[in-house]
Design a protein around this nucleic acid. Structure first.
Lengths: 105, 105
DNA sequence: TAGTTACGTTACTCTTTGATTACATATTGG
DNA sequence: CCAATATGTAATCAAAGAGTAACGTAACTA
């Protein structure tokens, strides 16, 4: 298992890629289905994003004939939460945060 | 309150900036203190990272004489968790995930 | 088997980003 | 006041990232 989450952070920094992950949350999709969900972009641009997601292990791809079935791997997202966001969550319940919410809300 | 979390994602995608946030988790720091925590980088490089963190509202800065005191704002991190990671957390406990873990582990 | 479908590879732009260098300003302690 | 401290601005540069375009291959199906 890859232990360095840097590529995952990089992958998540792009809104298109996060949208692809949102899409895959509803179930596996073949590449063409994903491409068609982004009509403002060329097929190749979307495929590059899928490549990045696969390289960072956020998406698994298995081939079935001429189709490639892409499915979400939620493990790296969970790792980001546990390893990095977890420590910050202590601050979410602090008094300072509540004050800030009051001021801004 | 800023509602678009895109700049926050971008800010978090850089390991140096995440390290700065980790540092600020222990309490507010003046700019020079942060700079000195990254001896492999020039002062300006670190300051630019602080600028990005401030622009994305992850860090608040107040001036005190010739010093700038930088403090962590955990709110955007919480928002990322709630708005984006939360929906995925359903999958963390799903059967699909357990099967996947078994296959890959 | 011929044409359509699904996907891949390579190469080339254009923009953004991370970092450096040089110069400048403001504060403060002695 | 003056030198050291703390920070800021501007110009520049290299590398990475996002997107497009052109061409190619393998598989299904009618």
């Amino acid at each position: 298992m890859a232990n360095n989450l840097d590529p995952v952070w990089k992958a998540l920094s792009d809104p298109t890629r996060r949208a692809i992950l949102d899409l895959l949350r509803t179930g596996p999709k073949i590449t063409t289905e994903i491409v068609e969900a982004f009509p403002d972009m060329t097929r190749h641009a979307v495929m590059k994003h899928i490549d990045v997601l696969r390289d960072s292990d956020l998406v698994n791809t298995r081939e079935e004939g001429r189709r490639r079935i892409n499915s979400l791997n939620p493990v790296p997202i969970r790792q980001i939460y546990e390893r990095w966001m977890g420590p910050f969550s202590e601050l979410w319940s602090s008094t300072l945060l509540r004050i800030k919410d009051d001021v801004e809300g």
